[in-house]
């Protein structure tokens, strides 16, 4: 609480706005690994040819 106090008219930097938005961070933190790890991984498994 001590040091942050920016002047009332001073705009809050975009990065700080992002880090101050828990629900936006939640969205990003769930979406990114879901796409890069889960969905990509599932697509690779689905693409394995079925044994004849």
């Amino acid at each position: 609480m001590a040091e942050q106090a920016p002047g009332a008219e001073e705009p809050v930097p975009m990065m700080q706005q992002l880090l101050d938005s828990p629900f936006l961070l939640l969205l990003i933190g769930v979406a990114l690994p879901t796409v890069l790890y889960i969905i990509w991984g599932v697509m690779e498994v689905v693409a394995i040819p079925v044994a004849q």
Binding site: M1, Q4, A5, Q16, L19, D20, P22, L25, L26, G29
Partner: peptide, 17 residues
């Protein structure tokens, strides 16, 4: 509280996400 949450809370937020 004013401004941003404390760093410890932010770390806990990371854990919760």
């Amino acid at each position: 509280y004013e401004g941003s949450v404390p760093l410890v809370t932010f770390g806990a937020l990371t854990a919760a996400i």
